[in-house]
Design a protein around this nucleic acid. Sequence first.
DNA 1: CACCATGTTCCTTG
DNA 2: CCAAGGAACATGGT
Length: 283
Amino acid sequence: MPELPEVEVLVRHLRPLLRRRKVLSVTVNRPKVVRPDSVLSFREGVVNHSFETVDRRGKYLVFQLLKPGRQGRLTMLGHLGMAGRLYLQPTGSPLPKHTAVILQLDGVELVFEDPRYFGRLSLSTSALEKLGLEPLSPEFTQAALSRLLASSRLPIKPALMSQPRIAGIGNIYASEILHRALISPFLPANVLTRSQIGRLHRATLFILREAVRFGSTVPLAFGQDGTRNGLFYYGQATSAPSGYEERLSVYDRKNLPCSRCGDLIQRVEQAGRSTYYCPTCQS
DNA sequence: CACCATGTTCCTTG
DNA sequence: CCAAGGAACATGGT
């Protein structure tokens, strides 16, 4: 579920719901998920603080909390890993099997569920310092993208996924962006032409914005009965006419026809991850 | 049973 | 310093 667009939709959802709410207690079922990894220091670090702002940087959720007595701020980072979900439910509602952390608020609880326990809730902000360009910010210009790509010989697909270069693009959207830009995933980043970089820049904005737009128009379905339709954990493929199935052009479409030219989508491995592409459109 | 999975970090090797 | 490759983390779907 979580690349930049999914995290952005989640942040917009949580922002008004968390504002000024106080953390009454903290339950950590999976100590490995919190940082610092001492349950006691994490709990003591967060309890009695009030949520002020909720933002996103790359794939991270950035929570600003006010300390008791409004003396200073605390930043908590959330990362959903591969399968994490974060949602509010009425206090005492049934909890999913793999609940890692619960923050008790007034009448509601913030549940961090993660079957694979790859996600994190952290009181350290050091991860943010390692992140590169923010694609949906004004600094993400074609010139900035060009500069960044010139310094790497990585194939463009893993380069796009490299968080210290560009923050927030993961395995699904990297393939989708390159297909829209008509660029081969194997092309070394530093050999892209000006016009290819232009297409890549425009495709990145289009694909990410379109995914945020889609996620924002589909009803959220959290909790026990929340259907997880692959990428998004909201909406049902059946109830969304232009739903999940039709949103992705190449990802997970091995041997299915390319929507643009009809040739068959190929799957290859790059840097240990699956890359999907159209060998004709992306030569 | 096998293989794959939206992610990051750490390690070794070149 | 860069890049590549592998392993680890832990569970679920097909």
